[in-house]
Each structure stands twice: as C-alpha cells, then as structure tokens.
Simulated assay, not measured.
Amino acid sequence: MTFILLIEQVLNGLQFGVMLFLMAAGLTLVFGVMGLINLAHGSLYMVGAFAAAAVAGATGSFLLALAAALAAAAAAGALMELLVIRRLYNRDHLDQVLATFALILIFSEGTRWLFGSFPLYLDIPDALSGPVTLPGGIAYPAYRLAIIAIGLVIAAGLFWLIARTRLGIRIRAGESDREMIAALGVDISKLYTIVFALGAALAGLAGALVGAIQSVQVGMGEPVLILAFVVIVIGGIGSIKGALIGAILVGLTDTLGGIALPAVLRLVTDNATATSTGAALSSMLIYILMAGVLIWRPQGLFGAQA
C-alpha cells in the first residue's frame, strides 16, 4: 500500500464517516430524547435525496437542491411525528418497530409512484467538480472534501446548539426527565416535533450530499440506516459526540479494512482468493468493532451509565 493510497482511503473514510454522522446524529437525538426506535429514518434520507435531485433537475442549482432536501425532509419528519409517531411514545418498542416499518413501505411506494422506479442522478456543482491537490501531491475530489467540511461544520453547530442554547437545555432535560420539564411548563409535544424535524433535516441533507456521488433510488436509505444504528451503539445512545466519533471509526474501519485485509491475505494465498475473502471479511469488520466496544463498554464509548 503506497502512502498516497493510504491518505486517499483515510479521506474516503472521513467522508463516509461524516455522512454516517449526519444520519446518526438525528437518530440518536430521537432515540435519546424520545426513547423511540425509528426504522423510517432511512426513508427521510431518501426523501432528501429525491427532493434534491428533482429541484436540481428543474432549476440547475445545487444550493437550491440542498435547501429543498432540508425543507422536504424536515417537513416529512414533522408530519410523521404529528400523525404517527406521537401515538407511539407510550407504546412498547415492538409497536414502534412495526409502525415505523410500515412507514418505510409507505415512503418507498409513495416515492416510486411520484418519481418512478428508475434512479435519478444529481450532478456535482461545477465549482466542486475537479480535484484538489493536497500537500504531497495527492489529488483528491473537491466535492468529497466539501462533504467532510460541511459535516464538521454541522457537528460544531450541533455541539453549540445542545450545549449553549435554550433549546439545547430543553433537549438535554427532556432526555433526563421528560415528566419534570413538562411539569415546569415546557411544551413537550412541541419540543418532540422540533427534535424530530431537526433529525429528519440532517438525514435529508446527508441523502442530498451523497446523491451527487451515487444514484438516487428507492430504498437507498435502509443500508445506511443499519450503519447509523451501528454508529449510535458504538458511540452511545443520546450522545452527539459519540455519534461523531463512532461514525468516523466506522468510516475508517470500512474503507481501510477493504484494502488492508486483501493486502495481508495476499501474503499467504493467491490474488483471486485474497480479493474475494478480503472483501467478505472487510464487510464484517464494523460489526466486529461494534462487538468489541460493547464487550468493553456496554453503554457505548460516550453513553451514560445505566
């Protein structure tokens, strides 16, 4: 493995991790504050991607596409919370799983009815379409660097929101004792809607950003949702810092493992076997990482002690 290839894979891992953070941050807020298992969070990722692709195709503006993704996902999340999720807070987790799984089917079929079964494509903006030469002569796509920068800026904004604002105080209080803050006069229903819409908007933004480097299609959110659950288990439920660290760990493990394992296996076997076996084992690495973290810290890296 050359040094340039290693740096490129580290940057790919950071980009993948940042995208997972945008998904996992909203998911961990919803689960931490509301105690709700939302399997339909991946559908909001898909809504953002389709909204961005549709608006970009109609206007040619990538910025308008991102704004549309945020607005569409936030609106879909708020409507979901008002019409369905609000009735599930006092139900057990099995009811929540079944109801949100039904929402996945509704979103998937509704999206297929509106946009058809064929994938859509979202073009990378011209200003970010070329490579950037990094120190050491490494040429890396400018758009992927932009995704990393956007994710880190949003992470900083979320840390500020949770730690320094009145809304953040209410979110943290709602996570600790929702009955007490309701007794103190906080409209807990309105707070839940805001938190759910915020998490939905982050998922929609992730879908829009990734939609420019892969096709936008029905069902694209479910594989990412599985990885987002892995991230919040590793980082600790309810922790934004844990979501960020966990997402970066998962991203780096996935990308670096994909090139390190085949390289190691080539030392003891032929190229064809090393490639196929290494690909199979590398896909398991993130789950091995999750298992190792849970053995060491069952509550996750930054989760609160039970």
Rank of each mutant, 00 (worst) to 15 (best):
G211D: 10
R91Y: 11
Y143I: 00
D126K: 11
P125G: 01
L70W: 02
L244A: 14
G57W: 13
L145R: 01
G258L: 06
V84H: 07
L261G: 01
I232Q: 11
L105M: 15
F302M: 09
V230G: 10
L103H: 01
I234Q: 12
L44I: 05
G130L: 04
V10W: 06
L39G: 12
A67D: 09
G26M: 12
G130V: 03
A24F: 10
A49R: 05
L134W: 00
S239E: 03
D126I: 04
S117V: 04
V132I: 05
V18A: 15
L94W: 04
Y143E: 00
I162V: 05
A58D: 11
A51G: 08
G17A: 12
L205N: 04
I104K: 02
V18Y: 05
I226V: 08
N38M: 09
P131Q: 02
L114K: 12
V30E: 08
P262L: 06
G199Y: 00
L105A: 14
A260V: 05
G251F: 00
V231M: 14
A291K: 07
G236E: 14
A73K: 03
M23P: 11
L256D: 02
S283G: 15
M284I: 03
A212H: 04
A58F: 07
I245L: 15
L198Q: 07
L281Q: 02
L70F: 07
S108K: 09
G174M: 05
A212E: 04
V250R: 03
G199L: 07
Q305H: 12
P141N: 00
V84N: 05
L94C: 10
A208H: 04
A201S: 14
N38G: 13
G32T: 07
F21D: 08
F302S: 05
L191E: 01
F107A: 07
A139C: 04
T275P: 07
G17E: 04
L103Q: 01
R178E: 15
L227Q: 13
S117G: 12
I150F: 03
G278H: 01
A74K: 02
I295R: 14
G235V: 06
L167R: 01
Q96N: 07
E222W: 12
A78S: 08
I188R: 08
A291E: 11
I181H: 01
L225K: 07
T28A: 15
R164H: 08
G278R: 00
L281P: 02
F196M: 07
I248L: 15
M34D: 11
V264M: 15
L63I: 12
A72Q: 01
E175D: 09
A203V: 02
A54V: 07
G136W: 00
I288T: 06
L64I: 03
F118D: 13
R91L: 14
